[in-house]
Amino acid sequence: MSLEYDLASGSTRELNKKLHALGIANKTDKICVTNPNGAHALAVGLTRPLKVNIKGHVGYYCAGMNQIAEVNIDGNAGPAVAENMMSGYVTVTGNVSHYAGATSHGGTLLVCGDASSRCGISLKGADIIIKGNVGHMSAFMAQTGRMVICGDAGETLGDSIYETKLYVRGSIASLGTDCVQKSMTEKHKNELETLLISAGITGADAAEFNRFGSARKLYNFKVDNADAY
């Protein structure tokens, strides 16, 4: 089923209610949302195999807590797009504001433009792919998952990072505490190539990227202490 929903005459609550009722029995429904005009909390909490295409700029929290659904934002996104995503695929054709993909556990967030500060903060397993640049404090306390930055990174990238892998193609204003450059082995190049291909990125060669991650000096888990937990 293919539907269209015009936010110029409808409400966010009605739209989200409609979206939650679609995609039953693993049947993929498509819905095109027009006139978002920067509205907040669009297409949040989706748990079914939907394809949602939002034509225009969105406000805060778009596609938050997403599961399974594919959400495409044809424009810019405000703060915290795809926050706490569990699975699925969220694409933004423009730029994203703060905290993009924050705390996301799974799925993929693809940003075709730039990301503002704190992108991927406390990342918990999702893949975040940014075609442009990311702002300061990105990947702060990022725990697992992968971040691919095709452009430049702002100050204190990966501060207090745990085990998220960071692949950066451009320059880095500064690395955060306990974030260090690591060797780019064949295994990592292959992993990155797979990520780039899956995101449809052809202009960037995996060999041009550097890998960054935790020096593991800030968080000190020693296997000798395992019995204590």
């Binding site: 005009n37 920067g38 700029h57 406000g59």
Partner: peptide, 12 residues
């Protein structure tokens, strides 16, 4: 926020 700008002529 962008939503304040969205209502200006030509904003889209």
């Amino acid at each position: 926020e962008y939503r304040a700008i969205a209502l200006l002529p030509g904003a889209h």
